[in-house]
Structure formats: structure tokens, C-alpha cells
Design a binder for these strands. Structure first.
Lengths: 158, 158
DNA sequence: GGCCCGGTACTCGGATACTAAATGTCCGAGTGCGGAAGG
DNA sequence: CCTTCCGCACTCGGACATTTAGTATCCGAGTACCGGGCC
């Protein structure tokens, strides 16, 4: 899985601590000492997926496009890593003996079905958790984090 | 995910149809028109993992090292694709402000925990299904497959 | 005739190239702000 | 002094290198079989 998923998730959480304000990729990258341009690339992907909204020019930057309760972890993963299953059925059976060339083996191959079934539970679990859930857990487990993060971004602005 | 996982799963199923006999990588590859040497590499990985047992020389080949009821889909995936989680936590928080350099963020980072939780359900689902289950489903859904496969391998032997 | 031995053909096994995708970087397009000029 | 306009600095956005991991291939190590030679 793409490393950008981790960056995107943490950045979304951080954006929750800075509501109603556009934060530049540069500042988000500085927070974790990440390469700015590359993080920018991931944020662009989130923007294309409708998770973030972007603004150009001075006072520009990124902010959440919708409430964090409406952003599931699966949304972020799909935006960065693509919608394809990890296990992709290449319809190997089509090359085997007695194959039906007009059949869709992604549907009828039992190996493919078994793998896909597991992947569905994975996706269901991811879609059941939202950015808001993560933020709530952070605020409960590490009560200082929210304030510290807000303060850090405020200081960097100058 | 590695493409070899698909090949490995199908090959394990096929080996179930040819019990008590060593099947060469060449024949297994010919069945799906796969590159022989590369499939051999995957079978080697299964052997290292203790899923298959291999024999060199004439009359050599691969066979299941244990009963198919004892081979879960997760075993095969881990053997080919490695045991690492798809989402690997790079402990991004260590570079952030106020980080504890001696803490293990793979354990305490809530983003990492959330992703890992989803991955656990995935692995649980995979470990719940065995090669024997797949074979049983195949025999029930496509009753001719077992016989046809056996016959195909028998004919190729000549 | 039976037994032993060496050659041979065939297999797995790991070391070695090649290719695609993830990672990282750079420059151009777009935009709001600030200041200077003019009324 | 107020308004308008122009230039500038800053941002995102996508096009362009670089590195890693997946894909594919090749040759050597090991082994059972087959044939010939010897007892």
C-alpha cells in the first residue's frame, strides 16, 4: 500500500484541529518533516476525490471539503491508493483447458470470490471508521495533542 | 499484492486433484500457460513456508506438505507476499513536535491502530478459509472440474 | 544371470537481468494582496 | 483622501526524473533412472 495513505490520514486529522482555515501543503509537510512537493501530490489526490478543497494564491491552501464524520478511512485509502482490490484476479482460468472464453472469471472463479470476500470485510471495517472517530480517540487518549497542534500551526504562521 | 498469490492458490487447488504424486513446476505452469521458471519461484516460496514439499531429479516435483484442511488462504498469502501489513506505519509521529523518541508509535498511534484493526479482520477472514474449502466448493459447483483436471495431467504425462 | 557402477537426463534452487510502479522533484498556471499612481 | 490599476509574491497543479520492488529468466546443485561392464 502506498505510503501516502499514512500521510493523508494524519494530515486529515491535523486539518480537523485547524477548522475553517486553509492550510498550505508546506506547513502540513513541515509538521512531520515530509517532502513538501510529494505531500502536495497526495493532497491533490484527496482534492480530486472531493475529500479536501483547495485554494490557490496567497491565503490559499487545503481544508476539509466536508465534515470529518462524513470522511471514512476507506475514502482516504481509495483516494490515494486507488479503488482496485489488493488481490486482482487476472482470470488465469481463461488460459486453462476447457475454459469458457466469454465467461467473466472474476465473478465465477471461486478463488477470486474467496479473496474478494476477505477484502470486503476489510473495506467494511475501514468504511466504518471515520476521521472524526480518530480525532475523538486522540482527544480522549492524548488530551494535550489538539491544543499543542493548534498552537504549533499558529506559531509557524508568523 | 503479488500476482504470484493467484498462481499459488490455483496450483494448490490443482495439487489437491493429484494426490500422492509429485507434480513438476513445468506441468503446473503448462496448465495455465504460465512462465515456468517464475511459477517455480513461487512454488519455492510455498516450500520454504512448509506448505509444499519438493523433490529433485526425475519423478521429482511438488506436492502438498500437509492436508489441505490445514492450509489456510492466509498461509499462502503470507508465504508469497510476506507477513507485513499492507499499511505499514512508518512512525511519522516521531518527526512531529513533542514526539517521544523512545515510544513505539506502531503501537500507540491511533491511525496505525485503526488501520491495523481493519487488517486483522482481513487476515481473520483469510485464515478462516482453507484450500480444502475451495476444493469442496469447486467440486460442488463444477462437478466435472476435478475429473477433467486429473485427466489433463494424466495425458500430459505421456 | 545377478550385482555394481557410471553416465545421463531431468528436477529444484538460487543468483542474475529486465520492467513497471512507487517515490521524489521541478517548473508553469492561477490568484489574491499591497502599493503606487491618478483623480 | 479615495479609487483604480498594475505588479508581485505565494499557492496549487501537473509534467518530469529517480529509486525501489515486482516480474522474468538463466545456469548450477542434486537425484533417480538406465545402460553397460564386471563378478
Amino acid at each position: 500500500m502506498n505510503e501516502g495513505v499514512e500521510w493523508a490520514l494524519h494530515s486529515c486529522v491535523n486539518l480537523c484541529f485547524i477548522p475553517g482555515e486553509a492550510v498550505t501543503a508546506k506547513r502540513l509537510a513541515a509538521f512531520y518533516e515530509l517532502p513538501t512537493a510529494y505531500l502536495n501530490k497526495q493532497l491533490q489526490a484527496l482534492t480530486r476525490a472531493g475529500i479536501l478543497s483547495s485554494t490557490s494564491g496567497p491565503k490559499g491552501g487545503f481544508q476539509l471539503a466536508r465534515r470529518p464524520e462524513k470522511i471514512s478511512l476507506l475514502d482516504v485509502v481509495v483516494a490515494i491508493d486507488g479503488a482496485d482490490d489488493a488481490f486482482r484476479c487476472t482470470e488465469i482460468l481463461k488460459a486453462g483447458p476447457g475454459a469458457d472464453s466469454k465467461a467473466d472469471y472474476r465473478k465465477i472463479c471461486l478463488v477470486s470470490q474467496a479473496m474478494h470476500k476477505a477484502e470486503l470485510t476489510y473495506r467494511r471495517e475501514l468504511s466504518g471508521q471515520t476521521i472524526a472517530d480518530i480525532v475523538a480517540q486522540v482527544e480522549q487518549t492524548y488530551p494535550d495533542t489538539a491544543g499543542n497542534t493548534r498552537r504549533w500551526f499558529a506559531n509557524l504562521k508568523s
